[in-house]
């Protein structure tokens, strides 16, 4: 985890956003070289911890992963409406899944945080539903493969995450808040619209605007 990026993502005023943006850019440049002084872990390291678990069933690596992700996954589950005891149970289930699935982790597809986010998300949905969440199966014989990407458009999952972090911090507060709502309050667009007393079309267009800005930012960096 890189604290600066975390702080930056929560920085919402114009001035602090501008400051955060410049420091984050500087920070992003050295992100892969060393652990942050706050004891957090850099993405590279998190990726290799998952790989160590996958390849060697390395329990020490798992402990370090747990230390980093368990508190975040638990917080996510609480934000999504679980009480603390449920959140603890589900978080443990999710971390078990991290162990079980670690062999299939591919850092070129998704970074550690993204991969664990999807595991926590699915664990939570499965706990609420009769059926397991419908998921894309990468080994589906019906799968239509993507065209090979051109060399200059290839971007690593890690670079993408770094760029996104910067882009989120640069979003206007309202758009950033809607994105948070969409991811952390388990609300569909219609429910967000009802809660915010906004027309559905407005919520959709603001979210579209936010996603458009994020995409533009990421593309500009390429």
């Amino acid at each position: 985890m890189c604290m600066l990026c975390a702080m930056e993502a929560s920085a919402r005023t114009t001035v602090s956003r501008r400051l955060a943006r410049s420091s984050a850019l500087a920070h992003h440049g050295r992100m892969t070289q060393q652990a942050s002084p706050t004891g957090g872990r850099v993405p590279d390291e998190l990726d290799s911890l998952i790989q160590a678990v996958g390849r060697n069933q390395d329990k020490q690596a798992f402990r370090r992963l747990f230390e980093h992700f368990a508190p975040r996954v638990k917080a996510y589950l609480i934000r999504m409406g679980s009480d603390p005891a449920q959140a603890e149970d589900l978080m443990q289930e999710a971390m078990l899944m991290v162990w079980r699935r670690s062999e299939s982790f591919d850092p070129s597809q998704a970074g550690a945080s993204t991969w664990i986010f999807t595991i926590a998300r699915n664990k939570r949905i499965d706990s609420l539903r009769r059926e397991r969440r419908a998921e894309l199966d990468p080994e589906d014989p019906s799968l239509v493969p993507a065209a090979p990407a051109s060399a200059d458009s290839v971007i690593s999952a890690q670079e993408r995450a770094g760029q996104l972090r910067i882009a989120i911090a640069a979003l206007p507060g309202e758009q950033a808040r809607l994105l948070q709502l969409a991811f952390y309050e388990d609300k569909t667009h219609s429910e967000i619209a009802a809660d915010e007393r906004l027309p559905l079309g407005t919520v959709k267009s603001r979210l579209r605007l936010a996603l458009g800005r994020l995409r533009k930012h990421v593309e500009d960096e390429r």
Binding site: M1, S10, A70, K74, A110, T114, F117, A120, F183, L211
Partner: peptide, 30 residues
């Protein structure tokens, strides 16, 4: 890309401490 956004937001969430024996319990189950 949208899932990557979810991961990025997970990074920036205010953490919530697990129970003290949590990691041992998980390793024990494993």
């Amino acid at each position: 890309e949208l899932e990557c956004l979810g991961g990025t937001l997970l990074d920036s969430i205010e953490p919530s401490l697990p129970a003290p024996s949590s990691c041992d319990e998980v390793l024990d189950r494993l």
